[in-house]
C-alpha cells in the first residue's frame, strides 16, 4: 500500500461514519454507563423524594452513619498496623519460600466471605448463650474485631502489591551505600510506601464500612437474646439499618437517604484513597 492511500485512509476515518469495531465499543460503554447511572439515579431520586415528602427520622440516620464510621475505623485501626508489619515482613525481610507461603495464604483467605466470619464470631463469642443482652459497648468491639479479621488479608495483600512496585534498584542503591536493612526500610521503603499506606487505610475503611453480614448477624443475635436490644436502633450501621428496614418494613422513608449517604461516603473515601496512590515513587523502573 502506498503512502498516499494510507494517508487517505487516515484522513477518511476521521470524517465519515463507519460502522466498525469502535462503534460497538462505544455502544457497550454507553450501555454500561446507562446501567450504572440507573443505579445512582434510582437511589438519588428515592432519597430526594423522601427528603421532600416525609418527615425523616434524622436521629436514626445520624446514629447509623456514625456507627458505621466508628466500627469501620476501629477495624482499620486494628488491621492496618498488622497488615503493614506483614507487608514489611514479606517484601523486606522474609526469604522467598516463607514469603511465598505467607502471600498465598493471605491472598487465598482474603476471599473468605464475611458471612462465614460472622458465623465464626457468633460461635466463638457465644452470643446466644449469654442472656445479658448487648450494650453497644459490647457489640462495637466485637464487630470491629471481626471486621478487622475480615479485612486484614486484603489489606495486607494490597500493601504487599504496592510495596513490590517500589523499584528494586532504589533498595539496591541504598544497600550499596552501606545502609543496614533497617535503615533501608526507614529511609527508602517507608517514604516510598507512605502514600500507599494511607491509601490502604482508606481502602480498608471503605470495605469495612460497606460490609453487611457481620454486623447484621451480631445484631440479630443480640436482638434474639434480649427484647430491648431488638428495639434499640442505637446498634444499627447503615447497611444493617437498610436490610432491617427492607425486611421488617421499618423506616421505609429513611432507606434511600441512608443509601445515598453511604454512596457519597464510599465515593469520597475511594477517591481520597486514589489520590494518595498517585505517587512518583513507582514511576521509575
Amino acid at each position: 500500500m502506498g503512502i498516499e492511500s494510507t494517508k487517505e485512509k487516515l484522513a477518511s476515518t476521521g470524517q465519515t461514519f463507519r460502522f466498525g469495531p469502535e462503534t460497538i465499543l462505544k455502544l457497550a460503554t454507553a450501555a454500561t454507563l446507562v446501567v450504572l447511572a440507573a443505579v445512582v439515579i434510582f437511589v438519588v431520586i428515592g432519597a430526594v423524594r423522601s427528603v421532600l415528602l416525609v418527615d425523616l427520622d434524622l436521629d436514626l440516620i445520624l446514629t447509623a452513619v456514625v456507627n458505621s464510621l466508628v466500627i469501620a475505623a476501629g477495624a482499620v485501626v486494628v488491621a492496618l498496623p498488622v497488615g503493614l508489619l506483614s507487608a514489611l515482613y514479606i517484601t523486606e525481610l522474609a526469604p522467598s519460600k516463607p514469603a511465598k507461603m505467607f502471600w498465598t495464604t493471605i491472598k487465598v483467605l482474603s476471599a473468605v466471605p464475611s458471612v462465614v466470619i460472622g458465623f465464626i464470631g457468633l460461635v466463638w463469642l457465644g452470643y446466644y448463650e449469654s442472656s445479658q443482652g448487648t450494650s453497644p459497648l459490647r457489640l462495637y468491639p466485637a464487630a470491629s474485631l471481626l471486621l478487622a479479621l475480615m479485612v486484614y488479608p486484603s489489606l495486607a495483600s494490597f500493601l504487599i502489591e504496592h510495596f513490590r512496585r517500589i523499584s528494586p534498584s532504589l533498595r539496591a542503591s541504598s544497600y550499596a551505600l552501606g545502609a543496614s536493612r533497617w535503615q533501608t526500610i526507614v529511609y527508602t521503603v517507608y517514604p516510598a510506601a507512605r502514600s500507599s499506606i494511607a491509601a490502604a487505610g482508606f481502602f480498608g475503611l471503605g470495605r469495612t464500612m460497606g460490609d453487611t453480614a457481620i454486623v447484621l448477624m451480631l445484631w440479630q443475635a443480640a436482638a434474639r437474646s434480649s427484647l430491648t436490644a431488638s428495639q434499640d436502633h442505637r446498634l444499627f450501621t447503615v447497611p444493617t439499618a437498610i436490610v432491617m428496614g427492607a425486611e421488617l418494613g421499618w423506616h421505609h422513608s429513611e432507606l434511600f437517604p441512608m443509601a445515598m449517604l453511604i454512596m457519597i461516603l464510599s465515593l469520597a473515601i475511594s477517591s481520597l484513597g486514589r489520590r494518595f496512590m498517585q505517587s512518583h515513587w513507582r514511576v521509575q523502573e
Partner: peptide, 24 residues
C-alpha cells in the same frame, strides 16, 4: 469522569446494589 464513576461504583458497598434490586 467515566473512569472515576466506574471506579467509584466498583467499590460501592453491595448493599447499594441490593437496594437497587429490592426497590427497582
Amino acid at each position: 469522569w467515566m473512569l472515576a464513576a466506574v471506579g467509584g461504583l466498583a467499590e460501592m458497598p453491595p448493599i447499594v446494589y441490593g437496594l437497587f434490586g429490592w426497590g427497582a
